[in-house]
Structure formats: C-alpha cells, structure tokens
C-alpha cells in the first residue's frame, strides 16, 4: 500500500497549512501534466499531493483596473477562449496554447508551466516579456513578485515549502502595445521547444518602439530576459538594421547546451531567427495588423 496521500483544500489557509505540515515531500497539483509524468517515471516521489483547484479564485480570469488576473490553476483552454486576453495579450495566449496537445490544454496551467521551472517552458518567455507578476501565498502571507523571480534553475523555484502561486497579474496595456511568442520545434506539434522567444512592445504613433521586453527560452538554465535585445528595439522602427541588431543581441544572449533536443550552434542561430520573426509579429499586432495564430 502506498504512502501517498491527497488533499483538495477549499481555502488558501487550509492549503498553506497542509503544505507547511507535510512530513515528507508535498507537491502542489494544478493541471498535473508535468507532475503526473514525473511521478509515473519515478523522478518525483511525493508523500502528499495538494490539489489547489477547489480553492476559490484559482480557476478563472478577471479584469481589474485594466489588468488581467488569471487564476493559477486556470487551464490553457479557458485562457485561449477568453476574448479579452486574446486581444490584449495574444503572445501570452499563443504561448500557453503551444503547450502540448488539445488534451494537455484541457489541464495545463501557467502556474504549473512556471513552477516546473523548465528552461523550455513555452508560456514562460511570454510571461517574462509581458512583465507579469505572480501573487504567491504562504505561511508568511501574500507577496507579489515579477515572474522572472520564480524559477531559479532547472526544476527549482524560489517558492518556500508552504508557498504556492494564487494568481498571475498582467499589467494594463497602453495603446499600440502587443506581444508575440514563437518557438522552434522539429515537428509541428507535441515537442518541447528547442528555442522559444517572447517579445512585448509598445510603439508610438509612427511605429517607433518606445518600450520592449524580450525573453528567450531553452538557451540557458532558466528562461531569460534579454535587455540588450529589448534595447535594440527601443527607439527604432522594425527596419533591416534593427532586425539585424536584435538578431545579434539574441544570439549573444543565448548560452544553451547540447542535448537531445538541439545543439549549441543551432540553438544560438535559431534564437536570432525567432527574435526577428517574433518582433515582426508583435510590431504588426501593435499597429493593428491582423495576424493568424502562429504555430
């Protein structure tokens, strides 16, 4: 008989108490699309599973003073069906949508994708680029941190034992702002990103970039923000010279490893390629040009 137990608390306090009081390894379950695979393979052997989906607010999307607030356990499919999110943050939505299959979309969550802390997580570069924050709850109360402070290394986060993410907040959008995400995979679906890139921009009425955030996935131990790449965009239209500088900055920031999904040489080149392509989509969107869903 196994020693693994399960709890589905209905309040934050109850959940925090369960996590704090766990004698062995406690794992937070939201969509489970990573956790269950890790359990089945024996890589993770928890003693307690705390299912957060029954806590009020953990599933759902709401608007607060121009910000979108997304419950940590909201499945991807629900976010993709949200017209407001799609209009304001198409890059975040398309990044989340790229995680796994339709079946995975029925379960996977932003919190799971972030806390699994894979450098190749699809939604994470888009969240980094978006300047999203995570509201974290725990025994010491509630704190709100930029998402880039959550993952600290492959499979590791800055969350304490009794902490979990309650929700994500996306900042209000100025006019002529948009975002985009692309990843490269060998097939058309079902792969882990070889490289991922998320870019969020705000333009002025002449199409000149006023603010930008660029994030790359799968080129370092965690998803990384690339200030030099953002700097290559700010103050410029997306002309050939700007694109070349962006490409170079992205390549310079890429410090990948050789593994079963890609080589260093290839990942560095593709980081530059994707940065250019993503910037083009984000700029188009910010200027109101319609774009199809990117796959």
């Amino acid at each position: 008989m196994s020693g693994l137990s399960y709890a589905a608390p209905t309040s934050v306090d109850e959940a925090v108490k369960l996590l704090a009081g766990a004698s062995g390894l406690a794992k937070v379950l939201s969509g489970g699309t990573d956790l269950l695979v890790q359990m089945r393979s024996g890589r993770v052997k928890p003693d307690l599973i705390v299912d957060t989906k029954k806590i009020p607010g953990l599933i759902g999307i709401r608007e607060e003073n121009g910000s979108y607030v997304i419950g940590a356990a909201t499945p991807g499919a629900m976010v993709e069906a949200h017209a407001g999110m799609k209009a304001a943050w198409p890059g975040v939505v398309e990044a989340l949508d790229l995680i796994g299959s339709t079946q995975i979309q029925g379960r996977c969550t932003l919190a799971g994708n972030l806390c699994n802390a894979s450098p190749a997580a699809d939604s994470v570069p888009a969240l980094f680029a978006a300047g999203a924050t995570a509201v974290i709850v725990g025994g010491k109360g509630r704190r709100e941190v930029p998402v880039e402070q959550v993952p600290v290394g492959p499979g590791r986060t800055s969350l304490g034992k009794d902490e979990f993410i309650l929700e994500f907040r996306l900042p209000p959008r100025p006019a002529r702002s948009s975002d985009a995400y692309l990843r490269f995979i060998p097939r058309t679906e079902m792969d882990i990103a070889v490289v991922g890139c998320g870019i969020s921009v705000t333009l002025d009425d002449k199409g000149v970039c006023t603010t930008a955030r660029v994030a790359l996935g799968a080129v370092a131990p965690t998803v990384v923000l690339v200030p030099d790449a953002a700097q290559a965009l700010v103050g410029h239209k997306l002309d050939a010279d700007t694109l070349a500088k962006l490409d170079a900055a992205a390549q310079a920031a890429a410090k990948p490893i050789n593994d079963k999904r890609g080589t260093i040489e290839y990942r560095v080149k593709v980081a530059g390629v994707l940065a250019r392509r993503v910037a083009a989509i984000a700029f188009d969107r910010a200027q109101g040009f319609v774009n199809g869903k990117a796959h």
Partner: peptide, 22 residues
C-alpha cells in the same frame, strides 16, 4: 505520459488524457 492520446476522455466538458488525471 500524455504523448499519444490513446487514453483520451472528456472530463467536465474538456478533452483530457486520462493518464494525466489522478
């Protein structure tokens, strides 16, 4: 591991892999 879809079921109106649900 959620990669083949042979275990697909519809749960609360959403398509899921039943191997990735407890």
């Amino acid at each position: 591991s959620g990669d083949c879809g042979a275990c697909s079921v519809i749960m609360n109106g959403r398509l899921v892999c039943s191997c990735l649900v407890l």
